[in-house]
Write a protein that binds this DNA or RNA. Structure first.
Lengths: 116, 116
DNA sequence: CTGTATCCTTGGCGATACTG
DNA sequence: CAGTATCGCCAAGGATACAG
């Protein structure tokens, strides 16, 4: 989209850069964790909330909405008696998992380094 | 068959969340790009600035300082006649490159997808 | 259960000018 | 050349209460 160049507005890093492109998707505060917990199976809203402690419902909803809009996951309302909603990764979302995996790998190394 | 998913815990949960640990390092606005441009060779301050257009020196310095403090890169003052400073990745920094690579790979896929 | 609605705070980011 | 100093903004994130 057209670059909005207001006063202090962000014009974030090199636009054409695939790095930036991708970081925009998983840059959100809880985004990588959401993808991580959805990687093997669909999860319901409260399940995800429980998986990722410390996030408020407002922020969580915002993240999920953005991820849905970006085509990373799909939201499906289940016709159960207590209404439930199931989130699952799309194919596009699944393409992000190698990157997440790589990040997790490095995370493990970091932990070892900082503790050892 | 119907997957029993109800109270089911998610994956082998990444304890202490290496994901978050790592994202904190490369979550900054220009951070992944800096690592990217340092991956193959050391670069000087203004070279990096030129590599990554649009960043102000203040922010750039802040990023570099934080990366140095986190042990991702090293800052070395060169005793040249016009003073110059060289930044290069540490071993720890080099361990981040697979993750960056993976992210870039996904970025390429995203570009293809969004452009048809 | 699955979210919205409000309100508030923070710190990350930006621009510009200046310095050793 | 390689940064600091100042100033300012605003959107992301958080807390809490409420709603369908």
């Amino acid at each position: 989209m057209a670059v909005k160049r207001r006063k202090n507005k962000a014009l974030p890093p090199p636009q054409g850069c695939p790095l930036t492109q991708c970081m925009r998707l998983l840059g959100g505060a809880w985004t990588p964790n959401i993808i991580w917990y959805l990687r093997s199976q669909p999860r319901r809203f409260s399940e995800l909330m429980a998986d990722i402690p410390g996030v408020s419902p407002k922020v969580f909803t915002a993240r999920l909405k953005r991820l849905e809009k970006d085509g990373i996951l799909v939201r499906q309302v289940m016709p159960t008696s207590p209404p439930s909603v199931e989130y699952s990764l799309t194919n596009l979302g699944r393409e992000l998992t190698p990157a997440i995996d790589a990040i997790v790998q490095v995370g493990h190394k970091l932990k070892r380094r900082y503790r050892g």
